[in-house]
Design a protein around this nucleic acid. Structure first.
Length: 482
RNA sequence: GCUCCCUUCGUCUAGCGGCCUAGGACAUCGCCCUCUCACGGCGAGAACAGGGGUUCGAGUCCCCUAGGGAGCGCCA
């Protein structure tokens, strides 16, 4: 049978980084084995599920390029099917109705806790129905007037074995498990039940999910068995922690995938970072999408939780920025400029800006911020830079530069380079003494791409205007008493 | 409390009994390159949680301890 995996998020928030990693591994495994990748939305908790969250999950996966072959399937649209299987279990004697009230259950749990026991359902209604002939009880209302819930009859003896693809063999004593609720008193199905029905109906061969589900697995396997079905293979992935080793949360900064785009990350960088969290292929650090697919092996997934390392993500992002096609990056840079409210219509071509900034930005946000001087004049100079480079001795340098640049026959990198170096030689100054004042004059701060490239992109008109402006600033400064 | 899982540099990890004087990457710190900022190049420091076994030999296998995590819902 060909491989079928699924990613089954519940739409209660955004697609967060841990979910994205799970989705990636499921996707990788399916692609690697030429199988199918199914997307299933687990929205049975209607109070907490939202359409916005569904959209956020779809957007996040699309941005990362994790395309699904089937779905999205919505559990809320399958209630009839769950009811059907529930009844099947009921009539086969694998499930029974439970008339215990919430209060009674709470009291039972409290008592068990007080006795230092594991809180679990003691099966009192199971004994009831078994004594009555095992019919599973009727739908008669309970003492509190509500309908009964339906519980699954978990085997009371023996063991359930999970042969996990990453954890190895994990053995659970059935006696440790209790009779879980598969249908609530309002008739809606619960998680452990819907998962089994869906994984079965959708013919999922490999369940790859977070290891917070490892403890649920024996319950699910038992339901599979009661249904007379073969359980899928399981692979439980280690958790992803925040940089400080604590559980990942909002206070760790970006947790939602789309926030990473806003912060200037490239999807290939995030994907590459994520694939190396809990998985490795020898010493290799950089993987293209194709390489990941070709090399991914579930048995290379490791078993311990890993902490997110923002610096390494940044490094990968810079790596992918450096390696990217300038024309592709131009579009992304344009998107970020738009977010910053900067109009790029009158400035240099975005792809040209990308070419000279690629090696000097760790994120696209940083690139946009360091490039805004190409498109808009700032209100003032960087204070420290102006004090250092636009002092009294800058005036003759700037005037000389202005003349040389104005007289240039052509305006390109080579010509500008010659002019600037010519001024430095004529004044017997080191290049830095000439380039820095010029840089502050045109870029308003101490940092820019190489000065010749910067001027070439800026154009003669803007360059000369900004030099004039710096000269005026100098005049004003020299009048003002210090 | 009970059940289950985990434990190699600060972090991500390689290691599947001898190749380990424990390798790589990020970060950090030096040096070089240099018109700024970067890129790049070279180099340095930095780890097998602890204790018992098994074995000629253990980071690698077993047990215990400690520490961390997850689950124990009419949440998923």
């Amino acid at each position: 049978m060909s491989i079928r995996t699924r990613f089954a998020p519940s739409p209660t928030g955004f697609l967060h980084i841990g979910g994205a990693r799970t989705a990636l591994f499921c996707w990788l495994y399916a692609r690697r084995h030429l199988g199918r990748f199914i997307l299933r939305i687990e929205d049975t908790d209607r109070a907490r599920s939202t359409d916005d969250a569904v959209q956020a999950i779809l957007d996040g996966m699309a941005w990362l390029g994790l395309d699904h072959d089937e779905g999205p399937f919505y559990q809320t649209q399958r209630f009839e099917r769950y009811a059907e299987v529930r009844d099947q279990l009921l009539s086969a004697g694998h499930a029974y109705r439970c008339y215990c009230t919430k209060e009674a259950l709470d009291a039972m749990r409290a008592e068990q806790m007080a006795n230092k026991q594991k809180p679990r359902y003691d099966g009192r209604c199971r004994k009831l129905t078994e004594a009555a002939g095992g019919a599973g009880g009727s739908d008669a209302p309970r003492r509190d007037g509500t309908a009964p819930v339906v519980r699954f009859k978990t085997p009371t003896t023996g063991q359930t074995i999970v042969d996990d693809a990453v954890r190895g063999r994990v053995v659970f004593e059935n006696a440790e498990l209790d009779d879980l609720i598969i249908a609530r008193s309002d008739g809606t199905p619960t998680y452990n039940f819907t998962v089994v029905v869906d994984d079965h109906d959708m013919q999922v061969t490999d369940v790859i999910r977070g290891d917070d589900h490892l403890n649920n697995t024996p319950r699910q396997i038992n339901i599979f068995k009661a249904l007379g079905a073969e359980p899928p293979r399981y692979a439980h992935l280690p958790m992803i922690l925040g940089p400080d080793g604590a559980k990942l949360s909002k206070r760790h900064g970006a947790v939602s995938v789309m926030e990473y785009r806003n912060d200037g990350f490239l999807p290939e960088a995030l994907l590459n970072y994520l694939v190396r969290l809990g998985w490795s292929h020898g010493d290799q650090e950089v993987f293209s999408r194709e390489e990941m697919v070709a090399l991914f092996d579930i048995s290379d997934v490791n078993q311990s939780a890993s902490a997110i390392n923002p610096e390494k993500l940044l490094w990968l992002n810079q790596h992918y920025i450096k390696a990217a096609d300038p024309d592709d990056l131009a579009a992304e840079l344009g998107w970020h400029f738009e977010r910053l409210g900067i109009d790029v219509a009158d400035g240099p071509a975005l792809a040209d800006v990308v070419r000279c900034q690629q090696a000097r930005a760790k994120t696209m946000v940083e690139m946009a911020e360091n490039s805004r001087f190409f498109y808009e004049a700032f209100a003032g100079y960087d204070e420290k830079a102006a004090a250092k480079h636009l002092g009294a001795d800058a005036t003759p340098v700037l005037m000389r530069l202005r003349d040389a640049l104005e007289g240039l026959a052509t305006w390109d990198v080579t010509a500008v380079h010659g002019a600037v170096n010519g001024v430095a030689e004529a004044l017997e100054l080191k290049l830095g003494k000439v380039a820095q004042p010029l840089r502050v004059a045109v870029a308003f701060g101490p940092v820019s791409p190489p000065i010749d490239q910067t001027l070439a992109l800026l154009g003669r008109e803007t360059t000369l205007a900004r030099i004039d402006r710096a000269l005026e600033y100098r005049d004003a400064e020299s009048v003002a008493p210090t």
